[in-house]
Computed example of a mutant assay.
Amino acid sequence: MNFPGAEESDVEEVPIVDSGDMVKARQKVRTSAQLHRLSLVDQTKLVTAASELARNTLVYGGGGVMRASVLTRSGKRGIKIQFVDSGPGIPDLDLALTDGWTSGQGMGLGLSGARRLVDDFDVVSAPGAGTTVTVVKWTR
């Protein structure tokens, strides 16, 4: 996901290899959202999206990494979060982004739910090539 004219700073990584790392990822996102003055509602939305995506990274991608950073563009700030795994990939992105569809035992709200909670959403995946999901929540 490219943001022309945006500067990225404060990049931090959180490995996601077990359920405890999912908690660390959520905490990192919450702290960053508070520090950069997202509203309480937007903090909650971003943390919820991060929680879903961290879970997907662990359960379906076999683990990976979360990268959190701050974007600044035209005086506006945003929290960018990227989840990267080297798992089996998603064979049909359109289907995976459909509400209610699940490849496992979940409720089918992970990707589609996360997409609704953030301002910018991008997913890149291919069978055998892993998955990268990038989301951004901008300050209002």
Score class of each variant (00 low, 15 high):
residue 106 G to A: 14
residue 30 R to T: 06
residue 122 D to G: 05
residue 16 I to G: 09
residue 85 D to Y: 04
residue 64 G to F: 01
residue 120 D to H: 12
residue 57 T to G: 07
residue 40 L to F: 11
residue 35 L to V: 07
residue 41 V to E: 15
residue 94 D to L: 02
residue 45 K to W: 08
residue 81 I to A: 12
residue 15 P to H: 09
residue 55 R to A: 11
residue 101 W to M: 12
residue 116 R to Y: 09
residue 103 S to M: 15
residue 125 S to D: 02
residue 120 D to C: 04
residue 140 R to C: 01
residue 10 D to I: 01
residue 50 A to N: 13
residue 79 I to T: 00
residue 58 L to M: 13
residue 29 V to G: 01
residue 95 L to F: 06
residue 133 V to W: 00
residue 100 G to C: 13
residue 138 W to A: 03
residue 29 V to W: 08
residue 73 R to Y: 05
residue 111 L to I: 07
residue 89 G to V: 08
residue 49 A to T: 06
residue 16 I to P: 10
residue 74 S to H: 15
residue 83 F to C: 04
residue 102 T to M: 13
residue 88 P to W: 09
residue 51 S to T: 13
residue 78 G to F: 04
residue 5 G to T: 03
residue 101 W to V: 15
residue 41 V to H: 12
residue 23 V to P: 00
residue 136 V to Q: 00
residue 20 G to Y: 11
residue 20 G to T: 10
residue 61 G to W: 03
residue 109 L to P: 02
residue 82 Q to M: 13
residue 138 W to F: 09
residue 41 V to Q: 12
residue 39 S to W: 00
residue 10 D to W: 09
residue 135 V to F: 05
residue 32 S to F: 09
residue 69 S to L: 02
residue 43 Q to A: 05
residue 130 G to T: 05
residue 83 F to G: 07
residue 82 Q to Y: 01
residue 131 T to M: 01
residue 20 G to R: 13
residue 86 S to M: 08
residue 49 A to G: 10
residue 129 A to I: 03
residue 5 G to Q: 05
residue 22 M to A: 10
residue 134 T to C: 02
residue 21 D to A: 09
residue 23 V to E: 09
residue 6 A to K: 04
residue 81 I to N: 03
residue 46 L to R: 04
residue 18 D to N: 15
residue 50 A to E: 09
residue 81 I to C: 11
residue 81 I to T: 11
residue 26 R to T: 06
residue 4 P to K: 12
residue 43 Q to V: 13
residue 34 Q to E: 15
residue 3 F to W: 07
residue 91 P to F: 10
residue 105 Q to V: 10
residue 45 K to P: 02
residue 64 G to H: 03
residue 104 G to V: 10
residue 101 W to Y: 15
residue 23 V to T: 13
residue 132 T to N: 02
residue 83 F to R: 03
residue 13 E to F: 09
residue 22 M to E: 15
residue 8 E to Q: 14
residue 44 T to M: 12
residue 80 K to F: 02
residue 106 G to V: 05
residue 74 S to T: 14
residue 125 S to Y: 08
residue 14 V to C: 12
residue 57 T to Q: 04
residue 29 V to Y: 05
residue 75 G to D: 15
residue 27 Q to D: 12
residue 57 T to W: 03
residue 24 K to G: 01
residue 9 S to T: 14
residue 111 L to T: 04
residue 46 L to Q: 08
residue 89 G to Y: 08
residue 77 R to T: 13
residue 28 K to S: 11
residue 80 K to W: 01
residue 133 V to R: 00
residue 135 V to Y: 03
residue 128 G to K: 09
residue 8 E to Y: 02
residue 14 V to P: 01
residue 126 A to R: 14
residue 21 D to F: 09
residue 36 H to N: 15
residue 92 D to V: 10
residue 28 K to E: 09
residue 123 V to G: 05
residue 106 G to H: 14
residue 84 V to K: 03
